[in-house]
Amino acid sequence: MNPTLFFYTLFLVFIITIGTIATSEDVVYDVTGKKVLNNVPYYIGPVVWAKGGGIKLTDTKNKKKVCPFYPVQDPAEVNVGGQFSFTLVAKQEYLLTSHILGIDSGYSKSSCDQSTFWQIHDAEAKAPSNLMTTGGSFDSSETCFQVVDYPKPTSSKVHSYMLQHCPSFCGAGPHTCFNVSIHEEKGVRYLASSGTPFEFVFQKVK
């Protein structure tokens, strides 16, 4: 074989191999070790259920009805929370880390006619302006999120993750990503863009 052709072929094999490895490492897994499907309902909750259960929506804040809704952590440790779909902007079969996505709550039985996609209006602000709500437009700077591996997992037995809000990846906004965290206010645990990152796991809806 021509030496030039040989090294060119070897280079292509190397690139394909590296690409395959990278892709397999990017896949998100649920608590049972199965790959998380793109745009399919899942529950998300903490690794250790000590301060509450899974994430759900609430239509009440400070004892008043609100629209759009707020994603909050259920105070009851036994509750898995609500069902949410994580939808990649790029079409894929499985959810991938560090890929832009939107989070859809699905429509509930309510008079609130706002969009069901999660959003953060102003990630650089302080609460309540940086709290997560529904009402966003898919693939916009307000609804631009990514799932990343949690840097120091609580348990080595399950795959745990955190959310990041990255406005500039989908349009205008700060050229940085903000860790989605828990912000406690009057006993209610909201999701917000400041504080210690919220570590969570995926559990497929049966």
Rank of each mutant, 00 (worst) to 15 (best):
D139P: 11
T116A: 04
S111C: 08
A123K: 03
P128M: 01
Q114T: 09
G136C: 06
F117S: 03
N130I: 00
Y150V: 08
K109I: 15
S115K: 01
K152H: 07
P153Q: 02
S155A: 12
W118P: 13
M132S: 12
S156K: 03
F145D: 00
F145I: 00
G136Y: 01
T154P: 13
T133G: 06
S156T: 05
C112R: 02
S129K: 08
K109S: 15
S156A: 12
Q114C: 07
L131A: 11
S141K: 03
A125D: 10
K126I: 13
Q146L: 11
D139R: 02
I120A: 14
S115A: 06
T143V: 03
E124L: 08
A125Q: 01
S140H: 05
D149S: 02
D113L: 10
S129C: 13
T134I: 00
Y150N: 06
I120P: 15
Q146K: 07
Q119E: 10
A125S: 10
E124M: 08
L131K: 01
D122C: 10
F117D: 06
T133F: 08
Y150E: 06
S156L: 09
V147G: 07
S137R: 08
S110C: 07
D149M: 00
V148N: 01
Q146H: 10
H121R: 02
D122G: 11
K152P: 10
A123S: 08
D113F: 14
K152W: 06
L131Q: 09
E142S: 15
F138G: 13
N130R: 03
C112L: 04
P128N: 02
S141T: 13
T154D: 10
P153T: 04
Q114N: 01
W118D: 06
S110I: 05
G135M: 06
F145N: 04
S115L: 03
S137Y: 08
P153F: 07
M132K: 04
S111R: 02
E124C: 12
P128L: 04
A123V: 11
L131I: 13
S110L: 02
L131T: 12
S111F: 08
